[in-house]
Amino acid sequence: MKQVFHYFAPCPRGLETVLAQELAELGALGIAPTDGGVAFHGDWQLMYRANLHSRIASRILWRLVERSYRSEDDIYKAARSIEWPELFPVSCTIKVAVTGVGCKLRSLDFIALKVKDAVCDSFRAACDERPSVDTAKPDIRVHVFLTDRQQTIYIDTSGEALFKRGYRRETGGAPLRENLAAGILRLAGWKADEPLLDPMCGSGTFLVEAALIAKRMAPGRWRNFAFEHFKQFDAIVWNETKQLSFAAELPNATCAIYGSDDTPEVLAAARANLTAAEVGDAVVLEEADALERNAPSQPGVLVCNPPYGIRLEEQTWLDALYPMLGNALKQRFAGWRAYYFTADLRLAKLIRLSASKRTVLFNGALECRLFEYRMVAGTNRKPT
């Protein structure tokens, strides 16, 4: 009988439901969405699959201890009870991160030091050595989550955050995180046999994620993971997991994915990312103004992360842009479903269309909206 482990997959807030659906498709059990992520359980190979295939999770954390606490010493004792030398070799570098919601203890940084001491004391007792700390690129990350009375200690099986796919070559000023883009595509209900257009594609994040979905390419296929340092790591099973994934790919899949931008340098960055992700053949890029371009094909899905401004002059420019975006949708995209993801909540009013759905999402700590517009001719215009 396979051993069952308990995991937690954090994700951008607002994507918990679609992450739960994705994990269920990967074979996860006991799925329990909560604010900011999804708890689940399964065997060791499920953890491999989740890291390799999840497009929406930020990390896959393996829960080691969960118990109540009253003081920093209680947290030290919980961390010290874990047999760390049985999990990874002393040669691995470590980092401890602590997050608290309602925690009444004086310092999360001090708690991180106590947990680090517990890990090092465990190794000293076992082998008279201790692992080194590396806060930049550690081999092993330990995550501690505290509520007002409960502590949970995890070891991170992913390493670098999962939105770091490993293909990206070029970025814009503030590129959309890959797992947020993938989650938005899922919220939009986009299917690989539907046309997709991003008319302000930037560095191409939506386009790459869509092409990976269409070609059934795992988002983690280019990168390494922290679990490869674990003593329980089974290289044979991991290789089998990857080979099954590669065998399921559709390298010659027919796609109708389109992107455009009005700046040649931006298009060059998008093209570099598409090529690095091995999906350059799946996407049609062209230089075009989002306000003037036509729909590339029969009805499909338009998805866009338009610019938003902080300075007054930027907001004045956007005040004029948003109504023109609404006009372009009405004139050229009848029958399409359009999705605008933005941190500028004025868009809903200024675009002068009736949103059929508004989804609250967070880009880090920044509250955003995903607005859905179903472009049926003659029915979307708001009265002026």
Rank of each mutant, 00 (worst) to 15 (best):
M1N: 11
H6Y: 12
Y7T: 10
L23M: 14
A32H: 01
G42F: 00
W44A: 13
N51H: 05
H53P: 00
L64D: 02
V65R: 12
Y69M: 09
R70A: 13
D74P: 07
I75L: 14
I75G: 03
R80Q: 07
I82Q: 01
W84G: 04
E86M: 10
P89A: 04
P89V: 02
V90A: 08
T93C: 02
A97R: 08
T99G: 11
V101Y: 06
R106W: 00
S107Q: 04
A118M: 07
R130K: 09
P131S: 05
P138E: 12
F145A: 11
Y154G: 03
G172V: 15
G172D: 13
L176Y: 09
L176T: 12
L180Y: 11
A182T: 13
A188C: 15
G189Q: 11
W190E: 06
L197V: 07
A210H: 01
L212M: 09
L212K: 01
K215T: 14
G220H: 04
N224K: 11
N224D: 10
K242P: 04
P251I: 02
N252K: 12
A253M: 08
I257W: 02
I257A: 05
S260T: 10
E265M: 09
E265Y: 05
V266H: 06
A268G: 04
L274Q: 05
G280W: 01
E287K: 14
A290Q: 03
Q298H: 14
P307I: 03
P307L: 04
Y322T: 07
M324L: 15
G326Q: 09
L329N: 08
R332W: 08
L347N: 09
K349T: 15
A355H: 13
A355R: 11
L361F: 07
N363K: 12
R369E: 09
R374E: 15
